[in-house]
Amino acid sequence: IQIFEKGDFSGQMYETTEDCPSIMEQFHMREIHSCKVLEGVWIFYELPNYRGRQYLLDKKEYRKPIDWGAASPAVQSFRRI
């Protein structure tokens, strides 16, 4: 998965294949504004440590949070399923 600090795949980008319990600790990001799921299925969580509201992401590109069903870019953790 590739995660971006700004919408439309702009700003700082990080790519990982590992679960992330805290985007702040692992990537020094506060929010995720866009992402590209390159393979597999992932779950975004609103809070750290896989808690809070969940969003299921299939293999595709998400230009903004509304594309994965979120009203805001408040994603604090994610993991692959």
Results as ranks from 00 to 15, higher is better:
K6A: 10
H28W: 13
S10E: 11
G11E: 09
E15V: 09
P48D: 07
Y14I: 09
C35D: 00
N49F: 09
L38I: 04
P48T: 10
R63G: 14
V75H: 15
G40P: 08
E46Q: 12
W42E: 02
L47N: 03
N49E: 11
D8V: 12
T17R: 09
C20W: 06
M24L: 10
E61H: 03
Q2H: 14
Q26N: 03
W68S: 10
E61V: 14
P65S: 09
I66Q: 15
I43R: 11
A71P: 15
I1M: 07
I43N: 10
P48K: 10
R79Q: 06
F78M: 15
S77Y: 02
I23Q: 02
L56Q: 06
P73G: 02
H28K: 14
I23P: 11
Y62C: 03
S22C: 11
K59I: 11
K60I: 03
T17W: 11
R51A: 09
T16Q: 05
I43D: 02
K59G: 04
Q54S: 11
H33I: 09
E15M: 03
D19V: 07
G69M: 13
F44A: 09
Q76E: 04
S34T: 01
P65L: 06
I43P: 00
Y50E: 01
K59F: 05
I1D: 00
T17F: 09
I3K: 00
M29A: 13
M29N: 15
M29Q: 13
Q54Y: 04
A71W: 11
R51T: 14
C35L: 14
Q26M: 07
E46L: 02
F27A: 12
S34W: 00
N49Y: 07
E39C: 07
D8T: 13
F27P: 10
E15H: 05
T16Y: 11
G69D: 04
G7W: 07
E15C: 04
P65T: 13
N49I: 02
I32G: 03
T17C: 12
R53D: 13
F44Q: 01
V37F: 07
C20S: 06
I81D: 15
E5M: 12
F9R: 04
Y14G: 12
F4R: 00
T16P: 14
R53C: 06
E46D: 01
P21F: 14
L57V: 13
M13E: 12
E61S: 02
W68K: 06
F78P: 00
L56F: 12
I81Q: 13
I81C: 14
Q2W: 10
T17N: 08
D58S: 11
H28V: 09
E18N: 14
V41K: 13
K60Q: 13
V37D: 03
G52F: 02
D19C: 09
K6Q: 06
Q2S: 12
E61Q: 06
S72C: 05
E39T: 09
V41Q: 13
E31S: 07
E5D: 06
T16G: 10
M29L: 05
G52P: 00
R63S: 08
C20I: 11
V37L: 11
F4T: 01
S10A: 07
G40D: 09
A71Q: 03
P73T: 05
L47C: 08
V37Y: 01
H33N: 09
R30K: 13
I23G: 04
I3V: 06
S72Q: 14
Y45G: 01
E18V: 10
F9H: 13
L56M: 03
L38T: 11
R63E: 07
T16I: 06
R63P: 05
L57A: 07
E15P: 07
V37H: 05
P48R: 06
F4G: 02
N49S: 07
G52E: 00
A71I: 05
Y45F: 07
E31Y: 15
E46R: 04
E46V: 02
E15L: 05
I43S: 11
S22Q: 08
H33L: 08
K36P: 00
Q2R: 12
K59S: 04
F4E: 00
I43K: 04
I3P: 00
Y14Q: 15
F27G: 11
D19L: 04
L47E: 09
L57M: 15
M13T: 12
R53P: 03
I32P: 13
S10R: 08
R79K: 02
Y50D: 00
S72R: 04
K59Q: 08
K6N: 04
Q26W: 10
I81K: 03
I43Q: 13
E18K: 11
D58E: 14
L38K: 08
K36D: 08
M13F: 07
I32V: 08
F9Y: 09
Q2Y: 05
H33W: 13
R63V: 04
S77L: 00
V41C: 05
V75R: 01
G7C: 02
H33A: 07
W42N: 01
M24R: 09
S72L: 10
V41W: 04
H33D: 14
F44I: 03
R80T: 02
E31I: 13
S22K: 13
P65R: 12
I32K: 01
D67M: 12
I81V: 11
D8M: 14
E39P: 03
I3G: 01
G11V: 03
I43T: 14
H28G: 13
E31N: 09
F78Q: 02
I66G: 05
Q76L: 04
Y45R: 00
V41R: 13
S72A: 08
Y14K: 09
P73D: 03
F9D: 02
S34Y: 01
M24V: 09
R63Y: 03
S10D: 04
G40M: 01
G40S: 06
R80P: 05
P48M: 03
Y45I: 00
Y62L: 15
A74R: 15
A70L: 15
Q54C: 10
M13C: 09
C20R: 03
G11W: 03
A71H: 13
R63A: 05
R63M: 03
G7T: 08
G52N: 00
G7F: 14
G52T: 00
T16C: 11
S22I: 12
I23S: 07
Y45K: 01
D67G: 05
M29F: 12
C20F: 03
Y55S: 01
R79I: 02
V75A: 08
R79E: 03
Q54G: 06
Q54I: 07
R30G: 10
W68T: 14
I1H: 10
K60S: 10
L47P: 00
L38M: 07
R51Y: 03
K59A: 11
C35W: 09
F27V: 11
V75Y: 04
S22E: 07
N49A: 08
I3R: 01
S34Q: 01
H28C: 12
Y55Q: 15
R51P: 00
L56C: 04
Q54P: 03
V41D: 09
E46I: 01
D58N: 01
Y62M: 15
G11K: 14
P48L: 02
E5C: 08
C20T: 05
D67A: 15
F9V: 04
K59N: 01
E39D: 08
R30S: 05
G40N: 04
L38D: 13
F9P: 01
C35I: 07
L47V: 01
G7V: 09
R30N: 12
E31H: 14
E5T: 05
R80Y: 00
Y14F: 09
W42D: 00
I3H: 01
P21R: 05
D58K: 11
M29V: 12
P73S: 13
L38P: 14
E18T: 07
D67Q: 07
R79M: 02
Y14C: 08
S72D: 05
V37Q: 05
E18S: 11
Y45H: 04
L38C: 06
P21M: 06
E39A: 13
P48A: 08
Q12A: 08
E61I: 15
W68C: 08
F4C: 09
D58Y: 06
G11F: 02
G52R: 01
F44C: 12
V37E: 04
Y14D: 09
Y14H: 12
Q2V: 07
R80E: 02
L57G: 11
